[in-house]
Structures are given as C-alpha cells and as structure tokens.
Nucleic acid binder design. Structure first.
Length: 566
RNA sequence: UGGGGCGUCGACAAACGGCAAGUCAGGAGUUUUUGGAGCUCCCAUUUGGAGGUUCGAAUCCUCCCGCCCCAGCCA
C-alpha cells in the first residue's frame, strides 16, 4: 500500500477508491475526469474539484480527463474553453492526450437514445414545456403520465429522426425517458433527454438541431471514457439514481460510480457563476481577472501561486458537509510560501519627507540589504541612502500614544539597514497644521543598523532615498464583500448590496527603492513591513510600474491598537 | 406532509466499537535590524438532543431537533 501514501489528509473519497483498489474493482484502475461547462471562468471552487480529481488520479497512478460538458450551446463559448484549459494547466495539472468534448460524442449519444427508444424506455413527448411542468406534480404529489407516453417504437423512432433533421420548431417535441411519474425523486419522473434547439453550437456549428441534456449526456460520456469514479458536487446526489438508470437501461459495459462532495464556500466572496458574471457585466469589477475575484485568473493576476492554491485545497479537505471556509486559510498559504521565497525590497506607500540635518547634502551611500532573511542563499543588494528620504506617514506621530514605538519628536529609531535617526523637529503646513516634513539627525556610528555602544531602539522602519526613488502605483485590495457570507439571503438580500466599497484602494504617489527594477516579473516579492506584492502585468508600463498587493503581512500592531480601543 | 443528504472546537476536518488527529483563527510567552518570520505552550472531560445495546459508543439501534438540495426543454 506504499504507493497510496500521501501527505494529504484522508478523505472519504480516497477511502472509497482505496477499498475499490483493494477489492480489485475496475481492473485496479482509477480514471477520473474534470467536466466543466464552458460557460464561465473557473474559480477557486473549481480548483478544489480539479485538485481532487487530478490529485486522486496522480496518487493512484491513474489518469484524469478534461472533458467539456458542452451540451447547451445557448450559454457556451470558445472563449471559455480556452481560459479553462489555461487555468487547469496553470494550476499544474496535465490531461495528456485526454482532452474531450461531450459535443464530440453527439452522434454516439444519439445512437444510445435510439437504443433506448427501441427498448421501449424512451419516448417522444409533444407536450409544451408548461404542460410538462404541470404534469410533473409537486414535491408531495405524484406526477401524471404524458398522453404521448405510449407511442409506438416506430412512431417514436420516426419523430426522433425528424427532430434531428430539424423538421420541428423549438419546443414542439422532446425525448423523454420512460421511468416513473410517481417517483418520490422528481428527477425520475420521465426526465427530458433531448430538446430541440436551433442554436448554432460553438464546435459543431449547425449540424445538430437537437441537443442532449446533462443527465443523459453526462453518464454516457463518463461510460464511454471508461471513467471509474465520477466525482461531482452534492446537488447531483438526487441525480445518481438517474445516472445509474440510464447506464443500466443501456446495458453499458462501463458503469462509473458517482460520488458527491460538498462544493467550496469561502467567507467574504461569492462562488456562483451567475453572480460572478453579474459582477463582471455590471462593472463592479474590471473583469473576470480582476484581482479581487475568486476566479483562477483573478487569483493569478493578484499574485497567488499555483502551489499555494493546491496547498489550500489539501488543507480544506473533502467531505459531504456544507461548509464555509475562512478566507484566512487561503491567505495563510500564500504568506507561508512567499515568506520563504520572496525577495524583500523597500517601498513607501504613503510618503512623508524626512530631512537628515547633519547628513552631507550631496552624499550618496550604498548600503547592504538582505534579500531574504529566511534564505541566505538569496544574497544581498545595495540600497542608496542620502540626505532626504521618505518614510511611511504612519511611522511618525507628533504626539505618540503609549503603544507607539516608531518615530516621534526626540525619539530614536533605526532605518532598516541604514542608521539610527532621532527626530529633532517637524515642519507643518501653516494652513492645515499637517506635518509635511520631519527633521532628524543621524548617528554616523550606527551605519548598517547597529550601535557600537550597544544601545537599542524600539523600532525599525523602512525608507526610500528621495533622490533615487522610483514612482509607482500600488493597488491595495481588501475583501470584495463586507459580509462574511454575501450569498446569505438574510445577511444580503441582494448580494451587490454587500460589496465592500473599500475593496480597492489605489495609491499613486508611492516611492520604491531602485532595486525593484531588477525584480523578475510574475514573481511575488515583499515590500518590507507591508505585505507581498507583484507586478500587475496588464497595467504596468515601462515608466509607470503598477503593483498589486497579494496579501498583507500579519499586523500585530493593528491588533494591539484594536485591543487598546476596546 | 414526498425524495435525497448532512450535524465532531470560532472556521475547516480526521477518527470505520478501544479511550476525540491536524490545519486556520484566537491567546500567552520567547526571540528578532520587518510590531514580519521562527520557537514553546494554551484553546472539544466530549461529538445536535434524549434514550437504548455493549466491559467499552462520535462510531451500532430508536425517537426527536436543526440545516442543505430537488418541481429547467440549465449544468
């Protein structure tokens, strides 16, 4: 069983597969599939399913197919198939030769339908959609048989052939499975298998005038591909008897086992494609890849790494209980990774000018800074220092409170990798009284940040030399929604009403050390004491870099302040 | 009042009749040239509730309570 050992925690689906393997089921094969409908972009919830399906296949040396469930041309588009392929690949998974489309099976699926008609297990029903709904009954009352339920095989065959030939208008007829109109499971009340639709399909064009529905197309597709374990989300649990019924009725040689798990919900975001589409269409976000979106493309642009998303999916587990994962779990993963791998550089987001009075006017020094204290192998770099520097506005207080350790009149702090400085005064705007400049003196003996006399400072702050600074735009992101569960009707009757007005803050006058020029694009780095950032590859220009904040650093000081306020 | 599921720490989640893992969040301390990171410790005498079976129950049985899904010619 050594080949089954994995670092991931155990879950009920893995246990089922292990048992199947031990029992020698499916010739000891594991074949899964990820079956998206190309009608939207993939999100972190899909990542959970992708990691599960591809992960299980890898763990048990089987394979995982990528199959587009493209049976509804009205909602689908090639734009989506391309983005889906890109996202799955980016997440680090490989379907090899096994890229499939349900639309490639249309002819076979049609033949299976014909088989069912010949077996007397399917019929053409000419009721309108409304009449079918009425006859379906309700949750507590059984349905009524369609008057067309007992058409002869010949008549059904002829009608179905003519449906395919495009002889009827949309809605004139459907093909239905003949099961049980009195079933307690509404899915078994003669479900529709085929509908007429004259919509052109993004892959098959106008060759088909009828399209199979999910319940029929999906199980048959799984079976044709030799899928062993067909993993889907909880809402399809009710469809399993139907999945099994179709394959039994067809006498399919391959009958995959459908297993359902709970889809991912995460705090402060929405996961339904419908809602995400609305956010895009109504312009609440800049697009599917807006860095605040829970989409894979959004997370990618935001600076999340594939490995951090995979780790997240391992961490949250797989079960049948409806649950809500704290987004902090996702954030923890990217912090953990970037802490170990990210370059450190200094950037001042909200600059406050500091003049070091006793520093020579024209002097510039190159000081050594460590690139990553967690990894000495990443080396050091030179950072220029001069008389006028910028520090963070929030690192200075004219009248400091008890918890504030940073710069204040008369107080000494360390400039990271540079000198100890002591505040000697401030310059204020005569109108507003706002501090526009801080005056300091430095101690030349503390070069590099250590005092030869051993004296300590309570705080180390970051800085950027004014003369050498690079101007940058920084985008600070926060949760897209204010309520922890914007999908909750009670909490947010209209989910858009819970949008966080401060989910994006754009800072235009940021100052970064020249070292940011050497940063590899597409990789996250840390602005010391602020958080992890990355280049925004869409909006950065040669003279105007734009940085996205991936995630902030843990802020103990903010916690202290919060406690103090209480 | 039909059918199908699910209830284990604030949030995820293991445990498959043998004495409640782990992760995130939170807290305390230690350390620190990032109020970061690290390290140490604390955080369910109890598994929705009540009964029962058993030497022994989160696990088996009964009843009750709560939550989720299903009445598309969507997936």
């Amino acid at each position: 069983m050594d080949e089954h050992v994995s670092a991931s925690p155990s879950n009920f689906i893995r246990n089922i597969i292990k048992e199947d393997l031990d029992a020698g089921k499916n010739d000891s094969m594991v074949i899964t599939r990820f079956p998206p409908e190309p009608n939207g972009y993939l999100h972190i919830g899909h990542a959970k399913s992708i990691c599960l399906n591809f992960g299980l296949a890898a763990e048990f040396r089987g394979r995982c197919h990528l199959r587009f469930d493209d049976t509804n041309p009205a909602k689908e588009d090639v734009e989506y198939t391309e983005s889906i392929k890109q996202d799955v690949r980016w997440l680090g998974f490989d379907w090899g030769e096994h890229l499939y489309y349900a639309s490639d099976y249309f002819e076979k699926i049609y033949q299976y339908a014909v088989d069912l008609i010949k077996a007397g297990k399917a019929y053409v029903c000419s009721l309108t959609a409304g009449e079918i709904r009425l006859n379906r009954g309700t949750l507590t009352e059984p349905g009524k048989d369609s008057p067309y339920r007992n058409r002869t095989v010949e008549e059904n065959l002829e009608l179905f052939g003519r449906m395919r030939a495009g002889e009827f208008e949309e809605g004139a007829h459907v093909l239905r499975a003949k099961i049980d109109m009195a079933s307690g499971n509404i899915n078994m009340r003669d479900p529709v298998m085929y509908r007429i639709s004259k919509t052109a399909h993004h892959r098959t064009g106008e060759t088909w005038r009828i399209y199979p529905l999910y319940d029929f197309a999906h199980c048959v597709s799984d079976s044709m591909e030799g899928i062993t374990h067909s993993i889907c989300t909880l809402e399809f649990e009710d469809h399993r008897p139907l999945y099994d019924w179709f394959l039994d009725a067809l006498g399919a040689p391959c009958h995959p086992q459908q297993i359902e798990f709970a889809r991912l919900n995460m705090t402060y975001t929405v996961m339904s494609k419908r809602k995400l589409l609305k956010l895009v269409e109504e312009g609440h976000v800049s697009g599917w890849d807006d860095p605040r979106m829970p989409t894979i493309s959004g997370l990618r642009r935001r600076g999340y790494t594939p490995s951090s998303i995979r780790d997240f999916c391992d961490r949250i587990g797989v079960a049948k209980r409806n649950s809500m994962v704290d987004v902090a779990m996702l954030e923890y993963g990217i912090r953990e990774e970037l802490n170990k791998t990210a370059m450190r550089v200094m950037a001042v987001l909200r600059p406050l000018k500091v003049v070091i009075e006793n520093y020579p006017d024209d002097r510039t020094e190159e000081l050594d800074a460590v690139n990553n204290p967690e990894d000495q192998a990443m080396g050091t770099r030179k950072v220029p220092f001069s008389k006028v520097i910028y520090i963070e506005k929030e690192d200075f207080m004219e009248v400091p409170h008890k918890q504030f350790f940073r710069l204040a009149p008369g107080r000494e702090v360390r400039l990271r990798y540079a000198y100890f400085i002591t505040c000697s005064g401030v310059v204020k705007d005569t109108e507003t009284g706002e501090v526009t400049e801080v005056r300091c003196t430095y101690d030349p003996l503390t070069r590099g940040g250590d005092a030869p006399d051993g004296r300590k400072v309570k705080s180390t702050i970051h800085w950027v030399s004014a003369r050498h600074a690079i101007d940058a735009e920084v985008r600070l992101y926060d949760h897209l929604f204010t309520g922890s569960n914007p999908s909750d009707e009670k909490e947010c009757p209209d989910f858009r009403g819970c949008l966080n007005p401060r989910s994006l803050e754009v800072l235009n006058s940021c100052k970064a050390e020249p070292g940011i020029r050497g940063l590899p694009e597409g990789k996250g780095f840390q602005f010391e004491r602020q958080g992890y950032f990355c280049h925004d590859l869409c909006d950065s220009t040669k003279d105007g870099p734009v940085f996205n904040r991936i995630v902030s650093l843990k802020d103990t000081y903010a916690k202290v302040l919060k406690k103090g306020t209480k």
